[in-house]
Design a binder for these strands. Structure first.
Lengths: 208, 208
DNA sequence: CAAGAAAATGAACGGTGTTCATGCCGAATT
DNA sequence: AATTCGGCATGAACACCGTTCATTTTCTTG
């Protein structure tokens, strides 16, 4: 009598999984990673405490699932920034989009980096994929900017540029480290982009 | 009858404080921030569980104390890199020293950024001081490189450069995010330095 | 030496993630 | 249609965490 929803392929197990991911996502978005408690989650989902562990092996697995969604949204936000403009402008737009996303969804964004899986646990392939898709967004403008570099060097460069931008934003938004007012952070991000762009132009000149 | 040690000014309270900081430092250095447990700490210090809270208000306060020591060691490691060489080389040496320190003392270094104090709690002044001392290490080479900039702009730039280098190193050493082999990380850090240095030279030329 | 203050003690408290014996319910079989 | 059976939901119980506080011990001081 139930089961009249669209995705008929989803069994009860999958239904509970999705519901838990939804609720965990909202909780993390509102209260951060530390706000996610097993008992509250079960209460909000209307299921028993133990039911969580029939759907996921860990809370860690659930968190990774939420983080994968955050990565997807972030990828979307970065993708919208690249309007087949000049490569350098595209990179700047992506950096600004990253800062904008971090500000708009700070707790969810924080959770991407605060969460650590238990020592020795391997990163699931589907999570590594989501992470690599994000980095690959930088590939097109980099290919345009540095036609001489091969794909693996470009991928490494993409990670490095992402990491540099991330570092400035992460520490800039962190009270404990820097306490940077918003306007100053905007300026400093712009400065970093200028510095890196100048270096990239020099690099591209070296390779011709 | 006791108290025959050198620092006669240290009372029992201070003695316990220092002992706890010592042990916490070793624990964090060996097992990371998550390895620090109140009961283990008390057992290792040979004191009761409650005694910890007569010496510190929180474990957080104790952790901040350990982190301040780590900042001091880091400052030392960075200071040794600046042998009144050319400014650009000094900056590169500092970045490499930072990577070297992060590798050599990875759990302690991680603890600097993993630890978050409870929401709303202000950063103690003595901790902010230690952090600012670290950034100010970059000031001398930057002043040499960009004589036109005033002190506040230099301080902001110092934080930005530090953050960029930190981002590349932090994400590079992070398994979950990047999984970068050591040699590649060395190369990518060198690349970042090259890019930033080129940008800085351009910036300094703009200001003359 | 006695009396008071200060510090150390560790059992207990409230919270956490995770497990597991139990009961229930739905589906397949006869 | 009755019955068996397998698997999932259940939530009390477990192990562990940081922190507190009544009590005991220790030290200082008049």
């Amino acid at each position: 009598m139930n089961e009249n929803n669209a995705d008929a392929g989803a069994g009860r197990r999958t239904q509970l999984r999705d519901r838990l991911i939804d609720i965990a996502q909202e909780t993390i978005a509102a209260q951060g990673l530390d706000g996610l408690k097993a008992r509250d989650l079960a209460a909000a989902a209307g299921c028993a405490l133990g039911a969580i562990y029939t759907a996921f092996h860990d809370l860690d697995e659930l968190i990774l699932r939420v983080n994968a969604r955050t990565l997807a949204r972030l990828e979307l936000a970065l993708g919208a920034a690249f309007v087949d403009a000049e490569a350098e402008q595209a990179l700047e737009a992506m950096a600004r989009a990253y800062l904008s996303f971090a500000r708009k969804e700070e707790p969810s964004w924080r959770a991407l980096f605060e969460h650590r899986l238990p020592p020795g646990a391997p990163v699931p392939a589907w999570y590594a994929d989501a992470r690599n898709r994000l980095f690959s967004r930088l590939d097109a403008p980099l290919a345009q900017l540095l036609p001489g570099k091969d794909a693996t060097a470009r991928a490494a460069l993409a990670r490095t540029l992402f990491s540099a931008v991330h570092g400035v934003i992460a520490l800039g938004l962190e009270e404990k480290i820097a306490e940077t007012p918003p306007k100053l952070l905007d300026e400093q991000l712009g400065l970093l982009i200028r510095l890196l762009a100048a270096g990239l132009m020099m690099e591209s000149a070296r390779l011709i």
